[in-house]
Deep mutational scan, measured.
Amino acid sequence: MLEGKVKWSNSEKGFGFIEVEGQDDVFVHFSAIQGEGFKTLEEGQAVSFEIVEGNRGPQAANVTKEA
């Protein structure tokens, strides 16, 4: 699992980007967020995730919010 911080997200469009130190930003779709209820990410929020190869390149999977 990698750790990063949410660079920005748009809940209306359903995606955002995660900033990882020393690496390119990672695309995240809201379907990759683990948990119940409305899935949102806040700018600056710490997250853990895996990287998978998506249709348009690397993207985050199994995203969990850190406490």
Rank of each mutant, 00 (worst) to 15 (best):
G57D: 02
G4L: 02
Q34C: 13
V52A: 06
P58A: 07
F27K: 04
G44F: 04
E50H: 10
V52S: 05
V6W: 05
E53H: 13
G54Y: 05
E66N: 14
G57T: 03
W8Q: 02
I33F: 07
K65R: 11
E53R: 08
Q34L: 14
V52L: 07
V26T: 03
L2V: 12
E42T: 12
G37S: 09
K13G: 08
E66R: 15
F49A: 02
S48Y: 14
G44L: 01
P58I: 09
E42G: 07
D25G: 03
G37F: 08
Q59C: 07
H29V: 03
V20E: 00
Q23F: 13
I33V: 11
N10Y: 05
S9P: 02
G16L: 04
G22F: 05
G4T: 01
V28K: 00
I33C: 06
V6K: 00
E42K: 12
E50R: 09
E43R: 15
M1A: 09
N10V: 05
K5P: 00
V63M: 03
S9R: 11
F17W: 08
K13A: 09
A61L: 07
E19C: 13
V52C: 11
A61Y: 07
I51V: 10
E42W: 12
G35H: 06
S48K: 14
V20G: 02
L2P: 02
K5V: 13
E36C: 13
G4P: 01
E53Q: 14
Q59R: 12
V52G: 03
S9G: 06
E53V: 14
Q59K: 08
D24Q: 12
K7P: 02
Q59N: 04
Q45E: 13
Q34G: 08
T40R: 08
F30L: 07
I18Q: 00
S11F: 12
S48R: 15
A61D: 05
Q34W: 08
V52W: 07
K39D: 10
D24Y: 09
V26R: 01
G35K: 04
S31F: 05
Q45C: 11
A32I: 03
V28H: 03
F38R: 12
G44H: 05
Q23I: 11
F17K: 02
G35F: 06
A46C: 15
S9M: 15
P58H: 07
A60W: 01
S31A: 06
D25L: 07
K7T: 03
G57Q: 02
I18D: 00
E42D: 10
S31E: 07
F27N: 04
K65W: 10
S48G: 05
F27I: 01
L2M: 11
D24H: 10
V47E: 01
G54A: 06
V26F: 03
R56A: 08
F49T: 02
K39N: 11
L2T: 08
G44V: 01
S48F: 14
E19D: 06
Q59W: 04
F38V: 14
G37N: 08
K39W: 11
V20P: 01
G44R: 03
T40A: 09
F30Y: 10
E43I: 15
F30E: 07
G37D: 10
S31H: 07
I33S: 03
G4H: 00
D25R: 02
R56Y: 13
Q45G: 06
Q23L: 12
S48M: 12
A46T: 14
G57C: 06
N55F: 15
G14H: 11
Q34R: 09
G22E: 05
N62Q: 06
L2W: 12
L41I: 07
K65G: 07
H29Q: 05
